[in-house]
């Protein structure tokens, strides 16, 4: 796939000496949804700010659509849309006014039909003449997205777009993002919600302490690092795990009613059949069994811990 963003050996050191980004190299492919995960202060927003021209890198190179973000900044900026983390909009301006302002700022002629389409898609059309100060927090987030989309960007950065919004709005936003992908827009998403990345991303990047720890296809990552858990509920509570079962590294719940077995789905032999046989040999009667796939959240927590 052809990269639309190429980052090479990018470093950012603030005046106080804090190193926000350390030798970052990364390529974002055209038309993909890339989710950048990381805890607070990991460097996600700094990275986005440098690509979109708000901050300046200390060293390294960033290219968008083969143009350098410093030397050809006007060209790179014209194709980038940014939904910032902070809801910073002129509070006394109307919804329509602020969206039209963004379109003009990015060098686009007024296009009422296009802007109407965006506002309708984001359920903002009815509120077009309302002042920003009169809107709810979720509505203000929608306005930020409308502003970012107003100039028909090829690359869209969403910096924590669903932070603090309700489940319904979050799902609406996922649908909007999926529709944008269908239109060929490249989307880079930073989020705290692993569920979000799990639902909509094609590739996942994990950043912590200014370093990229991992970049992987989401499906591959889930398979590669995903482990499954088998919960075995027994009829009679156990005091201890019998010696014959120690090789399975089982965990016994405090009430003695649940045995937990962790296994790797990628192995030819998971050991489940043998375990069930050994349980039968030990005369342990089963009440129920349940399997659970480890989530992206578990994977993320493990990577960041390492």
């Amino acid at each position: 796939m052809q990269p639309i963003i190429s980052i090479n050996n990018l470093n950012k050191k603030y005046l106080g000496g804090f190193e926000a980004l350390k030798n970052i190299s990364l390529e974002i492919n055209k038309g993909e949804i890339f989710a950048l995960l990381g805890p607070n202060g990991a460097g996600k927003t700094t990275l986005i700010s440098i690509i979109s021209g708000i901050s300046i890198a200390s060293s390294g190179e960033v290219k968008v659509n083969n143009y350098d973000v410093i030397k050809d900044s006007l060209k790179t900026k014209s194709i980038i849309g940014l939904v910032p983390q902070e809801v910073s909009i002129e509070q006394f301006e109307t919804v329509l006014g602020t969206v039209n302002f963004s379109r003009g700022l990015f060098g686009k002629k007024n296009n009422p039909a296009y802007v109407k389409g965006i506002l309708k898609q984001l359920s903002l059309w009815e509120k077009r003449n309302s002042r920003i100060i009169e809107l709810s927090g979720g509505m203000k987030r929608r306005v930020l997205i409308a502003k970012a989309l107003s100039h028909e960007p090829l690359v869209l950065f969403l910096d924590e777009p669903t932070a603090g919004v309700d489940v319904e709005l979050r799902k609406d936003m996922w649908n909007i993002i999926k529709n944008l992908k269908k239109k060929g827009v490249t989307i880079i998403l930073t989020t705290h919600y692993i569920e979000e990345a799990e639902n909509i991303a094609d590739r996942i990047g994990v950043i912590n302490d200014g370093k990229i720890l991992l970049i992987e296809e989401k499906e591959f990552l889930m398979k590669k690092m995903g482990k499954k858990i088998l919960n075995i509920f027994v009829n009679k509570p156990l005091d201890i795990i019998p010696n014959s079962l120690t090789k399975y590294a089982l965990k016994l719940s405090a009430d003695g009613k649940t045995l937990t077995y962790t296994y790797d789905i990628n192995k030819d032999r998971t050991g489940i059949t043998m375990l069930l046989n050994d349980l039968s040999n030990e005369q342990i009667q089963l009440k129920d069994i349940q399997t659970k796939q480890s989530s992206l959240e578990d994977i993320f927590v493990n990577i960041v811990k390492e």
Partner: peptide, 14 residues
């Protein structure tokens, strides 16, 4: 002060 300058900085304006 309110942070909207970021929109100006990220826009293709000289």
């Amino acid at each position: 002060f309110i942070g909207t300058i970021n929109e100006l900085l990220s826009a293709p304006v000289s």
